[in-house]
Amino acid sequence: MKLQLPCDEVTIRSLKVGDFVELSGRLITGRDSAHHWLIKEMREEVLPMMRGSVIYHVGPVVKKHEDGSYSFVAAGPTTSAREEPYQAEVIGRYGLRGVIGKGGMGPKTLAGLQQYGAVYFHAIGGAAQVLAQSVKRVETVFQLEEFGVPEALWVIQVEDFPVVVTMDSHGGSLHAAVDAASKSQLDALLGLSA
């Protein structure tokens, strides 16, 4: 299905684990330094770009053109688990409706998704070219000088950006389900079953 950003809570709460979604509209990027920065104090300047939209865990390769504009050269997701301590608070404080990343997140974020009405979108790790093609325009960038290219907060316009819902706002997590099933299988293979 297709989803336009920013979007409202009802739409997000209708999404379920396993849904394949193509995102269009404006979103912001942010990873390790960005999450620390967003938590440390309220950053009013980025709030309008974040409310109702999603934050994308990515450290892109970016090309700067002669006219001063930027374009994304390669932009696949980075591992989300590192933001587990901060994510729920960032979602709540900035009114995010979701997160894009890879590898999934833990119980604290899952609870945050339920509380605030947001989902975790899993992009295909390593698919930097396919995903960069979906990034149509770089609107602006925050903290570029301080954090460097991969860690800056890039505000981008995307079109039909392909993702899978792997954690929803009802407590569902594909990651928890696959982990549990593979653990049983491992125990069976190694003869460790209780």
């Binding site: 450290g59 390593g126 930097a128 960069a132 991969p150």
Partner: peptide, 20 residues
């Protein structure tokens, strides 16, 4: 998606993954 990405990267001589 992975296979399409590999073709795109090879054709354009662009990084397969942004984490090089």
């Amino acid at each position: 998606t992975v296979l399409r990405n590999i073709e795109l990267a090879a054709g354009n001589w662009q990084p397969i993954c942004q984490d090089t």
